[in-house]
C-alpha cells in the first residue's frame, strides 16, 4: 500500500474514533461545560443542561425552575476552577433514595459521569453525559466530592 493511502486510512480511523468517544469522557469538552457553569449567562447554562436536573438531592423538572435554581446557585457560589478534576462513571442511585431520585439515576445515559470540580469554597461534583453542540450535557450538581 502506498504511504499516502496508509496516511488517509490512519486519519479516517482517528476521525471515526473521535466521533465515538463520548464528550463526557473528554476533558476539553467537560471543561467547556464547567466554564459555562462558572461565568456564562444562565440561559446558556440552561441550554447546555438536560431536564430533569438533579440539584443536590432535588429533582428540578422545568426549564424556568432550573433557571431560577442556577441563578440562586450562581449568586451563592464562589470562583469555579474550569479545569475538570477526577472523573468516574456515574454510579446508581444512593441507597434509600426517594422515588424521583431513583428514577433520575435510572434514566442516566450509559456515558454519564461524575466529575469533580474545585471551587473557592470546596469541591462539588457535576453530572455530565449525552451530547449537545459537541459538548456533554450538564445533568446535575452535587455537593462535595462524590
Amino acid at each position: 500500500m502506498k504511504p499516502r493511502m496508509i496516511a488517509i486510512a490512519a486519519v479516517a480511523v482517528l476521525i471515526s474514533a473521535c466521533a465515538t468517544v463520548p464528550p463526557s469522557t473528554r476533558d476539553d469538552r467537560v471543561a467547556d461545560v464547567i466554564g459555562l457553569l462558572a461565568d456564562a449567562p444562565i440561559p446558556s447554562v440552561v441550554e447546555q443542561a438536560s431536564l430533569p436536573f438533579l440539584f443536590t438531592d432535588q429533582v428540578v423538572s422545568s426549564e424556568s425552575d432550573l433557571t431560577a435554581v442556577l441563578t440562586r446557585f450562581r449568586s451563592a457560589a464562589v470562583t469555579i476552577d474550569p479545569v475538570p478534576g477526577a472523573s468516574t462513571p456515574a454510579p446508581g442511585a444512593p441507597s434509600g433514595s426517594r422515588f424521583d431520585v431513583a428514577v433520575f439515576y435510572d434514566r442516566l445515559p450509559d456515558d454519564a459521569r461524575f466529575v469533580r470540580v474545585e471551587t473557592g469554597a470546596g469541591p462539588l461534583t457535576i453530572i455530565v453525559g449525552g451530547s449537545r453542540n459537541r459538548r456533554p450535557l450538564l445533568m446535575g450538581i452535587l455537593r462535595g466530592a462524590q
Binding site: 440539584f55 443536590t56 438531592d57 432535588q58 428540578v60 425552575d65 431560577a68 435554581v69 442556577l70 440562586r72 446557585f73 449568586s75 451563592a76 457560589a77 464562589v78 471551587t119 469554597a121 470546596g122 462539588l124 455537593r143
Partner: peptide
C-alpha cells in the same frame, strides 16, 4: 432546590 442553592456552601 432554591434553598439548597442559597446555602450550597
Amino acid at each position: 432546590a432554591e434553598i439548597e442553592a442559597a446555602y450550597f456552601f
